[in-house]
Simulated assay, not measured.
Amino acid sequence: MAGKGQSQSYAPTAADMEALARDAMARLPDPFGGFLAGVLLIVEDFAEDTILSEMGIEDPFELTGLYTGRPVGEPAATGDMPATIHLYRRPLLEEWIETGVSLEALVTHVIVHEVGHHFGLSDDDMHALEDAAE
């Protein structure tokens, strides 16, 4: 424990990271923000082993985020799970430590990237959207 007058820092929690992600989502320009109203946001330490296996990823630190769901404009089918953005806390923290880039910027980048995939955007489109969200 830190003594009186000292502070002790801790790694951001899942709730802290969710707050950063929700802030990033709120800064997205229209029309993107309007299409995210029903999208779930889930922060977990790592992706599940089945997801990593399906994606051919051996190191769980390689996946920082994932969008699952039907693309905008595609009709929903019975039994569809809700559209979801997953953020993976530990890989994001590792990237934060290794790069020195702010955690806010990293989370915004992953949010923009996952939203971009949902809308079928190119990498250049995603960079422009990310710049607008900063």
Score class of each variant (00 low, 15 high):
A11R: 14
P31M: 13
L20R: 06
G5A: 03
D131V: 01
D131Y: 01
L106K: 06
G65V: 06
Y88W: 06
T68S: 13
F35E: 15
I57N: 05
P29H: 00
H117T: 10
M55I: 06
D80Q: 10
L20S: 03
S7Q: 14
R22Y: 01
A19I: 09
L66D: 02
G100R: 11
E62I: 01
S53F: 06
S7I: 14
F61I: 04
D23E: 14
M55H: 06
M81D: 13
R22K: 11
S53V: 07
F119K: 04
G69R: 04
E134C: 07
A14V: 03
M126H: 01
G56Y: 07
Y88F: 15
G73R: 11
Q6H: 02
A83L: 01
R89E: 10
A2C: 03
D123Q: 10
Y67W: 15
D59W: 09
P71N: 13
V107A: 02
A26Y: 02
G34N: 14
T64Q: 10
I85Y: 06
E54H: 12
T13M: 09
E95D: 14
V72E: 06
D131W: 00
A24I: 03
R70P: 03
W96K: 01
P29S: 05
F35Y: 12
A37M: 08
A77P: 00
A14P: 04
I42A: 12
E98L: 14
E18C: 11
L103E: 07
L63E: 04
I97P: 00
A47Q: 08
D124Q: 14
E95T: 15
V43W: 02
L66K: 11
V43L: 06
L41V: 10
